[in-house]
Every structure is written in structure tokens, then in C-alpha cells.
Amino acid sequence: MDATFFAFVGLVIFLGILAYVKVPEMLTGALDKRANQIRNELEQAKKLREEAQQLLAEYQRKRKEAETEAASILSAAEREAAVLREDAKAKTEEYVNRRTAMAELKISQAETDAINEVRASAVDLALVAAERLIGSKVDGKVSNDLFQASLGDLKTRLN
């Protein structure tokens, strides 16, 4: 009997002991347990990935909504600014027109006042000239006759 035979017999006995102690079942059970654990981790990873994709989609949707809302707010602000510009322009034009009309009215009033003042001065000068002319050409008797005639004329007009 050779040493290889004894080594072979020892190996068979060792494998028999291992089978008796159920080492292969323990190894397969450990491997199955590890496989189940890996399978569970893969399922959890799938679920987490799906949740992450849903969150990403939700955040992208919210971002698009926010961008749309921002664009809406910006366009509303631009429209409001345009309305305010037009309103300010209209008010400025109205103010300028009103101020121009007031200035023209003041100028017209000043012209009227100047014309009236010139007329009053002309009347005063004409009265002074007429008084001097009449005073130099009319004596007391003619003046008394003119006064009486004017007084009579006035009485007839008043009645």
C-alpha cells in the first residue's frame, strides 16, 4: 500500500466527515443566504433608483413650472412698465398742454390788459387834449350854453 492510497483514503474520510457534519449544506445555505441578501440589495437599489427618477422628474417639472411662472411674471412686469410709461407720457403731455394753455391764456390776458391800458391812456390823453382845446377856444358864456344843452340832452335821454 502506497502513500497515495492512504492519502486518498484520508481524503475520502475527510470528505465523508464533512458530508456527515453537513458542511456542503452549510456552504450552500451561506451562499444562498448571501445570494438572497444580494438580491434584496438589488431590489432596494432598483426601488431607490425609481424613487430618484421620480424625484428628478418632479423637480424638473417644478423647475419648468417655476421658469414658466418667472417668464409670466417678467412679461406681466414688462406690460405693466409699458402701461406706466404710456400713462406717464400721457400725463406729461397733458401737463404740458395744460401749462401751454395757461401760458397762452396769461399772454392773451396780458394783451387784453395792455390794449385796455393803451385805450385808457388814449382816452385820458384825448380828454386832456379836448379840455385844453375847449378851454382855449370856449369862453364862459359858450361854456354855460354847452353845459345847459348837455344837461337838457341828458334829461331827455334819462326819461
Rank of each mutant, 00 (worst) to 15 (best):
A71L: 11
L27W: 05
D113T: 08
E78Q: 09
A120E: 15
A76M: 12
A81M: 05
I107G: 00
L27F: 13
E93L: 10
T156R: 12
L56N: 03
Q53G: 08
E51D: 13
R39Y: 06
E104A: 07
D32P: 03
A71F: 15
Q53F: 04
I17T: 13
Y59R: 05
S121F: 09
L84F: 15
F8N: 04
E69L: 12
A82E: 09
L18S: 07
L84Y: 15
Q54C: 01
Q60T: 10
A71G: 15
I134S: 08
E25Q: 08
V128P: 02
D2A: 15
G152R: 12
T112A: 08
I115L: 15
A120C: 09
L105T: 15
R63P: 02
E104F: 14
A71I: 13
E41F: 01
L154K: 13
A76T: 06
R99W: 00
A103I: 02
F5L: 07
L55D: 13
Q44Y: 05
S143D: 07
T92C: 03
Q44H: 06
I13F: 04
L125I: 02
R119A: 14
D124C: 06
A35F: 03
R34W: 00
L56R: 12
K22A: 05
G152N: 09
F8P: 00
E51M: 02
Q148E: 10
E93N: 10
A130E: 02
V123P: 05
L105C: 09
N40K: 06
F147D: 10
I134P: 01
R157C: 04
E25F: 14
R34Y: 00
V142C: 13
Q60N: 11
E67Q: 14
Q109F: 14
T156Q: 15
N116Y: 12
L48W: 12
L27T: 14
A120V: 11
A120W: 05
R79D: 04
N36R: 07
S150V: 04
N40Q: 09
E25W: 14
A129D: 06
L15S: 04
K155L: 08
T92S: 04
Q53V: 06
V83G: 01
I134T: 04
E131T: 01
V96A: 06
A149I: 10
T4I: 09
R157I: 07
N116E: 13
A3I: 02
E111G: 08
A70M: 07
K137G: 10
D2R: 07
G140N: 08
V9R: 07
E50D: 06
R49M: 15
S150T: 04
K62V: 02
E117C: 10
Q37I: 01
A35R: 05
L133M: 03
G140L: 11
K47P: 00
S108E: 14
L127Y: 06
L15T: 04
E65Y: 15
Y59S: 12
F147V: 12
A126S: 13
E93P: 01
L133F: 03
A77F: 08
L105R: 14
R98M: 02
A66Q: 10
E43Q: 03
A129R: 09
D87G: 15
I73R: 06
E78D: 13
Q44I: 01
E86K: 02
K91V: 01
L11W: 11
Q148W: 11
M102S: 09
